[in-house]
Every structure is written in C-alpha cells, then in structure tokens.
C-alpha cells in the first residue's frame, strides 16, 4: 500500500508481527539451542535460554553413533538425483504443453496432477513387491525413480507455468532465424526460463528431501536418507533431548538454509501459478 502509516501503528504492527514470527519459529530455535546443551541442561526446569555451557559433544556423539554423513549423502543423492532426472524428463514435456498446446493438453496436465493424488499407502504393497522383484529394495536407484515419479507432475506443472510466460513469438522468431528445435530449447527457452527452472529444482529438492513415506518404507540400511536417520531416534533415544536436537538440527539445517534462500521463487510454483 502506498499510503503513509503513522509511526504508532507501525510500532504496534512490528511488535505483533515479531511476536507471532518468533512464536512460530520457536520450536526450531529451541531445537537448535538444545542441541548445544548437555542432557541435564536440556531437561532443566525452568528451561535454560542462554545461561548454559555451550557444547558440541552431542553432534560428535550423534555422528559417531549413527553415521550421519552416510544418511546425509543418501539424502543428497536421492533428492538431487530425482530432481535432475525429473527436470530432464519434464523440460521437453513442458515445452510441448506450453508452446504446442492441443485440445488434449489441459487434460494431460490435469491427469498428471491427479497421479500425485494417488494415496501412496494404496499402492505400497505392489510397489514393494516390484522392488523385491527387480532387486531395488534398499537401493538408491529405486528410490530415485520413485521420488522422481511422485514429484514429476509438480515439476511439469511448475515448468509449464513458467514457460507459458515466455511469449511464443520469441520461439517463433528463433525458428524463423533458422534454429532447430534443439537449438531453440537450448539457446532461447532455457536461458530465458532460468529463474523458473531454478525454483522448480529448489522446490523439488526440498519435497524429495522431506519425503517420509517411501523413504521410510522402502529403505533399510544402505540407502536410508535423513528421514530414516531421524525416525530411528523416535525411541528410546528420543528421550535424550540434546542428542535428539543435534540430530534434528543436522537433518533440517541444509534444507532450511536452501529454503530460505529460495522462498520468493517457491511461492508461484507451489500454487501452480494459480495465485499471482
């Protein structure tokens, strides 16, 4: 709003907004804080907010006990691999839908999105069966495929909404200028859609990173990502608050940072372009 606001009102708004913001953020803040306490301090009553001995020993213990790095590496591979694979499949598809629309384009898009709504639990057994059949259980490649497939509709959708904003005339101009289809996509479309492609990659990386149904049900020791790493703390280690906090912090920190950097770009993709 382009209106002058009284300082008094701005002060009140500031106080309210910060109070609510801090309240919502508190669980995360508290987790990070607790991860630097000793176990005794972690359950101290009254809770300790600052006056305690900062320690890194929880991180050391967690790493030693659970081999954090392996889970982290798996998470990176699964999230990164499924996103890259998804983008490779989705860019050509989104190009087709955005620039060569036919009567069926809309139906195909909606159908793709509807596969996203298939309740995972409804097909859990068949998928496990297929995984066993093809020796994919507890392999990274199997999960990369599954995560790619569950996020593919979203990737196609996001790219489609971004591509649609690029005027078709520019691609036609490239065609008139003698560019082949490959050159058109490589030299004109992709560079123009870089912001959109980047935020699509980010959102899908986050979704794949946090996916907690298939990663819990289809992995055991070898390919388990951080979701499984943290689920192993559900009991009884969960009662050791400081270690739980350290593990939690380690699991969410990479994605939290990534998410914060990209929050602006994420909004549009999340709404499938329906809210501007």
């Amino acid at each position: 709003m382009a209106r002058a606001v009284t300082t008094r009102r701005k002060v009140i708004t500031t106080a309210a907004a910060w109070a609510i913001g801090l309240l919502i953020f508190f669980p995360i803040y508290w987790t990070i804080l607790t991860s630097f306490k000793t176990e005794a301090q972690a359950i101290n009553d009254p809770p300790l907010f600052f006056a305690f001995n900062w320690t890194l020993e929880n991180y050391a213990i967690v790493q030693e006990r659970s081999d954090y790095m392996r889970f982290l590496w798996n998470s990176v591979i699964l999230a990164g691999g499924s996103t890259v694979l998804g983008i490779l499949v989705a860019v050509p598809a989104a190009w087709s839908m955005a620039f060569v629309p036919s009567k069926r384009t809309k139906d195909i898009l909606l159908w793709m999105l509807s596969t996203k709504m298939l309740p995972a639990v409804g097909v859990l057994y068949p998928i496990s069966l297929l995984f066993v059949q093809f020796n994919l259980l507890d392999t990274r490649i199997g999960l990369v495929m599954v995560l790619m497939l569950i996020n593919l509709p979203i990737i196609v959708w996001m790219l489609y909404t971004y591509f649609k904003e690029i005027p078709g005339e520019i691609l036609e101009a490239a065609r008139m200028d003698g560019a082949t289809l490959k050159e058109e996509i490589l030299y004109i479309l992709t560079p123009m859609a870089v912001p959109g492609i980047a935020s699509t990659i980010l959102l899908n990386f986050i979704l794949a990173w946090n996916e907690a149904f298939w990663t819990l049900n289809l992995t055991a020791a070898q390919s388990a990502p951080l979701t499984a790493f943290i689920a192993s703390y559900s009991s009884p280690e969960g009662l050791f608050f400081a270690k739980l906090s350290a593990a939690s912090t380690m699991a969410i920190a990479p994605i939290l940072i990534l998410g914060w950097f990209s929050q602006k770009q994420l909004v549009r993709g999340l709404t499938f372009g329906a809210v501007k």
């Binding site: 606001v5 500031t14 609510i20 559900s234 699991a251």
Partner: peptide, 26 residues
C-alpha cells in the same frame, strides 16, 4: 508495513522446510 518484514517472513515460513519426521519428534 513494519520493521523487519523480510526476517519475520523467514521466521514464519521456516516450519514448512522441516521434514515431517523431525517436527513430529521434536
């Protein structure tokens, strides 16, 4: 309009990035 809009927005949006298993455990 208020002071620190950017930071508050980041605070508010943070839970979305926390994986479900972590938030449930915490």
């Amino acid at each position: 309009p208020f002071w620190g809009q950017g930071i508050v927005r980041i605070l508010v949006i943070a839970p979305f990035f926390v994986m479900p298993t972590v938030s449930a455990l915490v």
